[in-house]
């Protein structure tokens, strides 16, 4: 497979940054081209300086099919699913937090944990259907993907998008990305079916 051209124009990104008023920044992960190199995980760790055991972004390897008859061709396939925070429309973590430490920002839809307020009870991890929040055993607080809010507010792309080797992760405003996917006739897939938490991260396969 030759290296493909970026399928998302700079214009889409610029439009997302320029957009005024309430919006939902999010990621688009194209599972078809993901090679499972974990560069996004490492880029994220380097950018956010997370300790051992705390990952804002994980890549899960999924094996499908069976290889039970050695005389036949194995019917197997492997694909990789990158799991950042879904920055849900109705975050289950926010509803579960007993001290109101989790907020969803109106201006860009990013779900953030206020580490000054977090008491480390881990209720958000129990509540999250994607198992995203992780416990920082040193600081005794919960941490999760912030969509690189410190970069995004400066007009930079999230670290995972910038490091992605296979050019399979894109950043943008949710409606723009969904429209783009529709134009390109990519097949949108949903994790665990449609979730009640209204996840914003878009997957295609």
């Amino acid at each position: 497979m030759s290296e493909r051209d970026p399928i998302i124009a700079q214009e889409v990104i610029d439009r997302a940054f320029r957009k005024k008023g309430p919006k939902q920044y999010t990621l688009w992960v194209d599972l078809e081209y993901c090679i499972g190199c974990h560069a996004c995980t490492m880029g994220c760790k380097a950018e956010n300086n997370t300790p051992v055991g705390v990952d804002y972004n994980r890549v899960i390897e999924v094996e499908e099919g069976l290889f039970d008859n050695p005389k036949q061709r194995p019917e197997l396939q492997v694909y990789f699913v990158a799991m950042p925070c879904m920055h849900c429309g109705k975050p289950a973590c926010m509803a579960a937090c007993p001290v109101g430490a989790i907020t969803k920002r109106q201006e860009d839809g990013i779900v953030l944990i206020n580490k000054d307020r977090c008491i480390g009870c881990r209720y958000c991890a129990w509540a999250c259907p994607y198992g995203v929040p992780t416990f920082n055993a040193e600081a005794k607080v919960m941490e999760k993907c912030t969509l690189c809010v410190h970069r995004v507010t400066k007009g930079l792309l999230p670290a995972c998008v910038e490091t992605c080797v296979a050019k399979t992760r894109f950043f943008g405003e949710m409606n723009d990305l969904v429209n783009l996917i529709r134009e390109q006739r990519s097949k949108r897939v949903f994790l665990g079916g449609a979730s009640s938490t209204v996840p914003s991260v878009v997957y295609t396969k």
Partner: peptide, 18 residues
Amino acid sequence: PLCLDRVRKQQSMLAKLG
């Protein structure tokens, strides 16, 4: 139990992918 729950959740979620 939380880590076990995470694995269980992610497995059931990815099984339905598509």
